Simulated assay, not measured.
Amino acid sequence: MATARLVRLCPSRLPSPTPPPPLLSQTLRHLSTTTEPDAAARPPASRRRYPPPRPHEFSKPSEFIGSWTPAADPRQALSRLDRLHRDYKKHMKQARAEYSYDMELMRIEKQRKDDARREAVRLANEERKKAKVAAAETRAAERKVFEEELRQTLLKERQQKFEFWKAKEELREKKKADKEELLRRQSSEWIAEENLERRVLEAIIDTTPL
């Protein structure tokens, strides 16, 4: 009787299969597929301002969902649970590796875009500097041409003023010569300056009666 009672009590004392931990359940639910959004909620294709996005590739259903079945033997249950944990760790390791690979690709793409943007900014700055240098050279050439034209204009004006002054002096000398010639013609006799006193005395002494 004691033996039968011991046999009846032993199954109740054996450890029952433990359910998976909450973190495992949450992770398995997170890895499971999600339902595709309702097509009626999407805006009409005619009203879209941008091209439609690429069709989303949903992940395959997780093998861990619904894979646990209770076992009669506790040892077999523990063995299956350990195998499930190992498979889960392996799957998570692979998922982390894929995530790291995707993040590295994103980092490389971002680095490439940043380098391209910096290169574009550098080229734009160089073009702007070249344009400034070319504009400065053009302004310098125009200023040089303007200064040369101004110098030529000043020289021309100075030459014109000199020619005008020369013509005026020549005209004055000509008028003076014409006046002297007129005086010489109007005088019956031209008396030199050294003979002026002698002729005056002669005129006083030798008077001619009327």
Rank of each mutant, 00 (worst) to 15 (best):
6 L>P: 01
9 L>A: 15
11 P>D: 10
12 S>T: 03
19 P>R: 07
22 P>A: 05
31 L>F: 04
31 L>W: 04
33 T>A: 14
38 D>T: 00
38 D>G: 01
38 D>L: 01
39 A>N: 00
43 P>S: 04
43 P>G: 03
48 R>M: 12
48 R>K: 11
48 R>A: 08
58 F>R: 14
60 K>V: 02
64 F>G: 03
65 I>V: 15
65 I>T: 15
67 S>E: 14
73 D>A: 10
79 S>N: 09
84 L>Q: 03
88 Y>F: 13
88 Y>N: 09
90 K>V: 00
93 K>C: 10
97 A>D: 15
98 E>F: 03
98 E>K: 10
99 Y>D: 08
101 Y>C: 08
105 L>I: 07
110 K>W: 02
111 Q>H: 07
113 K>F: 11
114 D>A: 09
115 D>I: 03
116 A>D: 14
117 R>A: 10
117 R>Q: 11
124 A>N: 03
125 N>R: 08
126 E>R: 10
127 E>K: 03
127 E>A: 13
131 A>V: 01
136 A>K: 12
136 A>G: 02
137 E>F: 05
139 R>T: 05
140 A>G: 11
141 A>T: 04
143 R>D: 15
144 K>I: 11
151 R>T: 00
152 Q>I: 00
155 L>H: 01
156 K>M: 07
156 K>E: 13
160 Q>A: 10
162 F>S: 04
162 F>Y: 06
166 K>V: 04
174 K>E: 14
176 K>D: 12
181 E>T: 06
191 I>S: 00
196 L>D: 10
200 V>L: 14
200 V>C: 13
203 A>W: 02
